[in-house]
Write a protein that binds this DNA or RNA. Sequence first.
DNA 1: ATTTAAATAATACAACTGTATTATTTAAAT
DNA 2: ATTTAAATAATACAGTTGTATTATTTAAAT
Lengths: 207, 207
Amino acid sequence: MQPNPVVCYNTDMPKIVDHEERKSHIAEATWRVILNQGMKGATVRKIAQEAGVSLGALRHYFATQQELLGFAMKLVSDRANARIKDIAGLGLPPKELVTRVLMELLPLNDNNMAEMEVWFAFVFHLKYAEEDYGGLNDGIYPGIVNLLGHLEECELLREGLDMSIEAERLYALLDGVALHALLEPQRLDRERILRVLHSHMDSICRE
Amino acid sequence: MQPNPVVCYNTDMPKIVDHEERKSHIAEATWRVILNQGMKGATVRKIAQEAGVSLGALRHYFATQQELLGFAMKLVSDRANARIKDIAGLGLPPKELVTRVLMELLPLNDNNMAEMEVWFAFVFHLKYAEEDYGGLNDGIYPGIVNLLGHLEECELLREGLDMSIEAERLYALLDGVALHALLEPQRLDRERILRVLHSHMDSICRE
DNA sequence: ATTTAAATAATACAACTGTATTATTTAAAT
DNA sequence: ATTTAAATAATACAGTTGTATTATTTAAAT
């Protein structure tokens, strides 16, 4: 943990730019490069060019490439979590709430589509880049367990379901649909994605 | 289509090694490198070293890296298709047949696990490497449509199902489970994968 | 106006990349 | 045994990579 340059307010040092804003700006440039050229094209030089900064400027904010990629990946997760939190505070009825949250984990609009594509790229990259890869640790699976638990508490789920397996099945369905929508968008358009999701929700919910 | 060097039998040229066997040997080395270091580590030099051949020898069989990767990817698909064809000729009852085929598309053993990991790596790589990427063209989705159609002909499916959406749902479930098993093998072990698959099969089949 | 350190820029360097070139070795045919 | 071309090996080259180094510019404080 090195000293954070952002907290250097009210001192004798010059404070010119918003450090965190600048880092996010570079992170978003990283996303765009990954979307266009894949993780293989995400070199520090291309990212600097996409962000409109020099190599030295980029290095001033991120000491290494790994640090930059880690920051850019975390920012994806933060943005998605913020959106989901917003939905949770909307006061929707249970089944609608769950469906709306799950929709946020699917590429149903351009923003989510790009976000998921970048996310998958990061996840695959991490599996081989990290010396000790111990599996994913986004909290999506536990989150889905909670969503199903909420439906059951409201007695909206069919009886006799194995909750753990149902969570696994729903989670797999979501990422599978997302993956296929990214790879074959011509077959799996927005409307078809929604039909699959609603079909599954109806199949696990009481009539 | 360039002239195939394998057909040069009974001529004045020396015929020392089995050309196709040698190419497959290098392709399998490619798989191992990808498994250990990801697509980013799949350089011609590392692949040559893993295969135990010199850079010049590798280049003798594959003029470019793209040609090598294309061959190695097709070999994955060929091996998997061959296994599925074997199962189809086993004379199993319909539901068992379908389940057995679907199991072949899941990482239920070390061989399939490695095969799927390499396959996903290739698929993602292709999406950005190809100038005009027009979606995947493994025939898995049509194959799943056929499998479900077979179950319906045998009147084993529940009534009122939208076959197209059910195929999409099953396909997503398969690749989602496979993806999660690769990324989080500690949670999604072989037994759990099978429980998810059987749970889904029971949910779409008549009791 | 001067000082100060952040912010940026320019350049350098060693390692690695795909591909090309050239030479050498090998084994089958005559 | 000699010839022939496949098979292999060694080396080279230009381009890219991540990172390091150094110098310059900028704007806030005194």
